[in-house]
Amino acid sequence: MPMIQSGHAPVETTTIASDRPRWQKELGQAVTTPEALCRRLALPESMLAGMAPGHRQFPVRAPEPWLRRIEPGNPDDPLLRQILPLPEEGEDQPGYVSDPLEEVSGDSASATSGLVHKYASRALLMVTGACAINCRYCFRRHFPYDEHQLGGSDWQAALDRIDDDPAINEVIFSGGDPLASPDRLLARLAAAVARIEHVRRLRIHTRLPVVIPQRVNTDLLDWLGDTPLQKVVVVHINHPAEIDDDVQAALRALAGTGATLLNQAVLLRRINDDADTLEQLSERLFECGVLPYYLHAFDPIAGAAHYDPGDERARALTRTLLERLPGFLVPKLVREVPGQPAKQPLNL
């Protein structure tokens, strides 16, 4: 039976005293109101009335390292549009629901808090409900994290369930964003997972190295590099403008731990739903040591229908990418369908 041990040896570093407070400070000082967002990015005050309903439903959150990549005064900036509440969020659209993947209400919902077991060989741990940024199109924007994240005795119960199921060979740290948690906790949890004999891989789904690249600090690199498990880090980048020099350095540092780096993007109307942008994204990712993995067709989440470019648009763009790029740079066009044993490719 794997146990989370409290006596994990401290990591000896020389830079962590400055590294750790920096990313946590950025989290704490994130812009969290429409008014502050408009002031920071020189947006017209006339936009505030339209932002208010969406903000009440799903609050604004964006840290400074992300905001620095946005063109001030441009309401069509592709990074701004990912975090900008719009009046359309208050419109009910048929077929767009609060739990599109049935993670709360469906068969994948777990009796153990914080554990989601959708697929036979993989188990997903909701390490935290916290995120560094609130992406308006998020399929978990209505997810009740206070009821479905690990805490207290839940950690051990989740590990015991994984230990009892020899079919599980991969554990996924998810959330929220698991890297919003302290490295000491993540190191202990990774060590406990590694003690489960039949688990071979650790996968981490995170946006933090992109949103706050300073999150990739010495502590993170040390525990990730030390785990005996094969490790995969799946980042979430939708547009090439998200990758500045700091993000590139963070991604290369993660690759230096021996982790395989993959990217999953969401196809978003008026953000990345054109072939040139997607082609540039794949090329830029590969320069940073990241392979394009998935291009997600839009999940029908309530409040975000205006981001959906439609499946036919998604198929046409993928066909164009196949003509322009080598196969290893073309992400798989998929949709997650509740109750299915794997993500479903969209036939071209």
Rank of each mutant, 00 (worst) to 15 (best):
G54I: 06
D107G: 11
S110V: 03
P34H: 06
L79P: 06
P53D: 07
L115Y: 02
D92K: 14
A30V: 02
T14W: 12
R22E: 14
R68C: 09
S18G: 10
A17L: 03
V104C: 11
L115K: 03
G50Y: 00
P59D: 08
Q57L: 13
D19R: 07
R81F: 04
D107L: 13
Q57G: 08
I70Q: 03
L67H: 00
P87A: 03
D99R: 02
P53I: 00
L48Y: 08
V116E: 04
P75G: 06
G54S: 00
E64S: 12
P94Q: 09
D107T: 12
D76V: 08
W66C: 04
E45S: 15
I83L: 07
R68S: 13
L41P: 05
D76P: 13
T15N: 12
G28E: 09
D92M: 12
A30E: 01
T14A: 15
P85C: 03
S105Q: 12
G50A: 08
P53V: 06
D92A: 13
D99K: 00
V104N: 07
L48R: 01
S98T: 10
A109S: 12
T32I: 12
S105Y: 13
A49L: 15
T33W: 02
E103T: 08
P100V: 06
F58N: 09
